[in-house]
Amino acid sequence: MTAPIELIGLTKAYGRRRGIVDVNVEVREGEVFGFLGPNGAGKTTTIRCLAGIVRPTAGRALVFGRDAWADAVAVHRRMASVGSDPGYLGELTAAELFRHLSRLRVMAPDAWRPIAERIELDPSVQLRKLSRGNRQKVAVVDAFMGEEPLLVMDEPSSGLDPLMQREFLGLVAEARAAGRTIFLSSHNLTEVERACDRVGIVREGRLREVTSVATLLASHARSVNLLLDAPAPAGTFDLPNVQVLAATDREVHLMAQGDVNPLLGRIASLRVVDVSITTPDIEDIFLSHYDARISGAEDPPAPASDGAADGPPPDGGGVAR
C-alpha cells in the first residue's frame, strides 16, 4: 500500500539560505506524526513542499505515491493542509470562507458547521475582526471539515486556549479513529506527546530523529529520588544503566535508563520512607537535542530509532518508516 507521505531526500534551499536538507521519512497510514523543531528548523518549509507551494531543490515529497509539486491537484483531492497563521481574507465571514473552501474542496457546503459549533466559533463575524485565538479556530475548522484521508497541519493549536486545545486533541483522536493520517508540526510538546504516535525531530533543516513517542520517552533516563529509613547496604545500586548521582545516609538520587524493574527489585528490599520517579516529558527530550547545539557539539543526523529503519544510506541520511 502506498504511504500517505514519503519524503525522499527532500531538500529546499532559499538561495544561499538553508531550508531543509535531505529529509527522509515515511508516514504510515492511520498514524499521527508530529514534526518537532524550533523556529527556523525547517518545519514550515517541509509542509510547504508537501502542499506543493514551493518546489524542492532536490528530492521528492510524495503524497499517496504522487509528487506533491508536479501532481498538486491530485494530491489535494486526498490531502487537506492548513498552514501556520493562515492568511484568510479579512473581508469574508467565517461562514463565507468555509462555503467557498467547501466548493473548492468539492464537499457538502455545510460540512464545516458541526466543527464550528463544537469549538464555539461564531461564523457570522468578519475574519478581520477575529482575535488570534478565534482565527486559529477557523484554521481548525478548515482542517477538519473535510474527509480527506490525510491532514497536514502547521502548528494548528497555537493560540488556542487550554479548553480548545483539548477539543483539538479530541478532533485529532477522532480523525485517527476514522483511519485518517495526520502530519502536524508543533511547538506544543505536551500536545505532541498526547496526540502523536511518532515524532520527527528536525533541527537546522535536518531530521535528527524519528521515533515513536513511547520509545522516545522510554529510552531516556528517569530520575529516582529515595528517602530511606536507614542507609542502603553498599552495592545496592550497582546495576547496569543505573547511576548514583548523589547520596547521603538516607537520601539517594539516581538516574535509571531503560528497564527499571531490576532497580525496583533492589528498592523493594529496602525500607523506603518516600520515593519519586520522574519520567522526563517530551520537552526535556526535545531540549536535550538542543543542549548539544548550545554546548557547541554537533550530533550527526540520526536514523530512525524505533527499530524499523531501513538504515542510513551512504550519504548519512536515513529513511524512517
Binding site: 507551494i53 498538486a72 493542509s81 498552514g83 484568510y88 473548492l104 468539492v106
Partner: peptide, 9 residues
C-alpha cells in the same frame, strides 16, 4: 497557499 491547498489548479 489556502486556495492552492484545495484541488484548485
Amino acid at each position: 497557499a489556502i486556495s492552492l491547498a484545495t484541488p484548485l489548479s
